[in-house]
Each structure stands twice: as C-alpha cells, then as structure tokens.
Design a protein around this nucleic acid. Structure first.
Lengths: 280, 280
DNA sequence: GCTTGACCTTCACGTAGCGTCAAACCCTAC
DNA sequence: GTAGGGTTTGACGCTACGTGAAGGTCAAGC
C-alpha cells in the first residue's frame, strides 16, 4: 500500500490527477483511512491506471473511458468507439496538415513581400441549398439590376412570410463579356415551398433547384457598387496563386444586406468562388 | 452602420463572439449608443475581423492576435511567431499521426484477438540524466543484489542530503547469460555533485556519466522479485511486435520504491526498454 | 399612442482536464 | 514536543466561447 505521493511517483502522474480520478470514480484508492482521509493505493491498481492513460492517449474522453472500464462493454462496442475515434483523428490530421500549409504559405508570403498582406479572403465550405431562381442572359449590369428589382417585387409576399433567405446571383458565363452576361438570380429557400410554380410579374416561371454543396469556397466581402468587383477578384486571384488553388465552378454573389436599388453604394455583397487544389 | 445581429450575419460569426472580442478589446464596435448600449459596427471593420479569424485559424491565441494587431509588430516578429506556430503544428501533426497509428493498431488487435488486451506497457520519452554509477560483470543475480546493497550503504550520507534520485540498474549485456551479468548500478543525480570522486567502501571509484535522453521508451512496472522479470519482457515483446518497434539499446531497471533487501517481494521496479521503429 | 415581437443589453454559469494556491489536519522522526 | 513534510478539502484559473435568464430598445402595424 502506497500513500498518494508514493503512488504518484511510481505511476509518474500528479497527485492532483489521482485525486481527480478518485473524484470521478475512475480510479478509487483501494483504501481510505477513516479518520485522516488519507488515500492508500495498491500496486494492483497500476494496470487500471495504465489502461486509463492509454485510452486517454488514444483520444477517448474520461467519460468514455469510465464506460469502457466499468460497464465492461463488448469488444465490438469498443471497436466501434475506436472507429469513431479514428475518424476524428483522421479529420484532425487533415486539419493539422492544412493548418501547417497555411502557416508555411504565410511565412513564404512574408519572405516574399516583406509583410503579411491584409487578409480579406476567407476560405470555407458551403452546404447545399435550395434556390428559387431565374436564369437569363442580359446585355448589361443595369439590366441585371433591373432583373433583381423585378424578382424582388414579384416575391414580396413570399418574403414577408420569411421563407426567402438571401438574394444570390450566380455568374454562369465562362468568359467575361460585358454585353452578354449569363446570370442567374434568386433567393435561397429557408423552408419548403408550397406553390408548385411561381412566376414573375411578367409571367415568366421561376425554377427551384438545388445549389450543390461546395467543399472549398474562397470568399470576400465587397462593399459598394458592383463596379468595384474587380478589386475583389484581384484579391481572390492573388490568394489562389499563393495557395495553389484554381477556380472550380461558377462564382456567386450573395447579398448579405437586402439590396436597395436607391442606395447601391451601401450594398454588402459576399463574392464566392468555388475552388479546388491544383496539382503542384 | 450595422447592429450586432446584422454584422454577425455579414461576417458569419456569432453575436457572442463579437461581444467577446469587444470585451477583450480585440474588435471594438465603431460606435456604442450612450443610453441603449447598442453596439454599432461598420463595414470598414470587416477586414480587422477577418484578420482575427485568419490568425486564429493559423493557431495563434487571441492574446497573441491582439499583440499582432495592436502593437503592430514588425514583419520579422510576426515571422518569428509563425515559425513557432509552425513548430507547434509540426509536432501536433506528428502526434496526431502517432495517435492514429495507435488507434489503428488497437483496432487491428481487437480484430485479431477478439478483445483489447491489458495494457501494462506504456511508451514515453526519457530526458537525459546524470548517473552516479558503477559497472561490473557479476556472476549471479545475488551478486548484483549485493552490489546494490554495498552501493546504497556507501552513499548513505549523500542520500540523506537529497542529492540522490532513483536507484537505476542498466543491463549492458548483449546476450543473456545467467553467470556473466554485465550490469551498471547507480543513482540518478538531482543536483550537481560536490566531491570529485566518490568511492565504494571497498575503495572502488564511482563514475559520474550522462545517461542520454531516449526518445522512445517502452516501460512496464514489475512488482515483486526479479525472478518475475520474464513476465514483463514477454509483454514488452508482444507490444513491440504489435506496433512495429524493435529494441534500440541497453534496458534499464528503475527502482520506484527504495529497495529493501529484506522485503524484495515488495519492490516496485520499472523496466525500461529503449525502442525504435523498424522499417516496415 | 400603444402593442407586439424581434432585437439588444449585462450577468452568470458551463465546458475538459486538470494546475495551482490556501488553510487546516496528519504523520513521523529527532 | 515540535518541526517539517505530506495530505486533506475547497476553490479559482485556464481557452474561447455557447447558452440561457432577466430586463431594456426599436420599428412596424393598429
């Protein structure tokens, strides 16, 4: 029988840890003196402690470890837990590699440019969404803006119901032409739509389609008129080149503030570019 | 100017986060209404928020981020911080890979044996230490034990001063021979030694030498007589085979409890085996 | 002007796994 | 008997927020 200090030296763990595990019921001392309250551990408890430490090292929480040890669950169940943990570990590994790559690219950036540039470009993923939209080829940005206005007015009733999410525009054109803009505008749906087919005031029907999930999206917020969009695309371009990505699909513009045609200079738009790694 | 809710939707972060960063002084709202206390953010604050998020993603703590942003430190200093972070990330990456390997080997073990075996073997690293020791070839375990007794008695005075750490024995023999045991016994030093040369009662001098650090050590605690050591070596062997390691140096026995020759069956000894990965 | 509902405020607790005091009690050796 | 080292419980601290609760504000519709 060892006092807690001796046992902690033997097992090379802290006394606090042992007291904590006692409190959790994870490792109870074999004996506790009535009057002094001293904890006494026996050497026979080392294997249990070691099992705890091993399982902890594997990434299980103390709660899970308690279940593993006490409700002596079957090998199959333990295997299941380990499979879950393996998934976690694989994800964590991938994240850590990404992080490392980011760090190294930032260091390289400092070495190349002498400073860390302003970071307006953010990378994230985007889940799949339902889009209530209309696609057209328009001859000018003004016409596109008019389309947005028309759409907004036609859907005013729906908007009041809170079914409509953010206004989103998608640029389908492969190449950039100022006079033939292939654009899709619509609203993200936040609930199932009741009416089978909705129409513009002009009678043109709107379609509901799924906007696929995008795993990697380079995004940047633009404030002000659409004419300033090239500032954003420039930043995106620099970002892609620096990090070894390329464009991988039609870009989107999401209006984070509901757009007002009379005050477009206050509009807040997030430009989204689906991207993918380029083989190095 | 946006209220906190709008700004949070624009930046796609939670309100709580914005309030928290305000509290930390990391991102102060551009304006706060006197009477209502409402926070108002401007679009011009998005870049700062984005920088915060990027640096957070790189793994810097909020505290470090505050220093980076406010005491606008030089590119060189930032580079230094990133180098530190890179080291951290590399270590984390290596750990995560190790963890994943361990998890997979445990799963494989369950698949092979139908259950998770008792885990007495622990792997860890050992730092470099100074050892005050004596090396000899003795003809029996009993002689080795006698050597320990002699050493302990000769160093009783030193032990009282608290300079001596744990008693450690090192098995130098390449092959196992019962009648020619090449053993080194000594005490780990916890402080610099004053006397230049210490001697056994018999006059034999003790040497002070550095016990190199070991990156990977498979350890197992043995309780009881040395005759039971083969139980431990068996476990170690199974462990090595299962995880793709091989022996990589002389093994050590560390007496976690000061040994008493009269009650050797109560001795607590950690057996340590330096190991290294075997190319698969 | 009043109601209503969405939005905002501060305050405070909870998280995981212990580290780190603090005040008081216990044990053992000289 | 006392000194000093070990032990007890209790409590707070750490990170980066999430999640209420209780109550004040704002804008729209009547």
């Amino acid at each position: 029988m060892f006092k807690i200090g001796d046992f902690s030296r033997i097992a090379r763990v802290s006394c606090r840890l042992l007291r904590y595990y006692d409190e959790l019921g994870l490792l109870r001392p074999e004996q506790i003196e009535r009057d002094s309250g001293y904890r006494y551990y026996s050497a026979a408890q080392l294997p249990r402690l070691n099992r705890i430490l091993v399982l902890k090292e594997l990434g299980l929480s103390l709660d899970e470890i308690a279940r593993v040890l006490d409700s002596n669950l079957s090998a199959a169940e333990l295997r299941g837990m380990l499979l879950v943990r393996r998934n976690d570990a694989q994800r964590a590994l991938a994240e850590e590699m990404e992080r490392l790559r980011h760090i190294e690219s930032r260091i390289a950036q400092i070495d190349a440019e002498g400073e860390l540039s302003v970071d307006d470009v953010i990378m994230r993923s985007e889940p799949a969404q339902q889009l209530l939209s209309l696609r057209r080829v328009v001859p000018s940005f003004a016409a596109a803006r008019e389309l947005v206005r028309e759409l907004s007015e036609s859907l005013r009733a729906l908007k009041a119901k809170g079914v409509l999410g953010r206004l989103t525009a998608i640029a389908h054109a492969q190449e950039f032409e100022t006079d033939r803009i292939d654009v899709e505008v619509g609203f993200v749906l936040q609930a199932e739509l009741q009416d089978p087919v909705l129409r513009l005031a002009s009678g043109e029907p709107l379609s509901v389609r799924e906007l696929g999930a995008v795993e990697r999206m380079a995004t940047c917020v633009r404030i002000g008129l659409p004419e300033r969009a090239h500032l954003v695309t420039g930043k995106i371009g620099v970002f892609l080149e620096a990090n070894g990505y390329g464009l991988a699909g039609p870009s989107r513009e999401v209006f984070l503030q509901p757009p007002r045609l009379d005050r477009m200079e206050e509009s807040v738009v997030e430009m989204q570019f689906p991207i993918a790694k380029i083989a190095p």
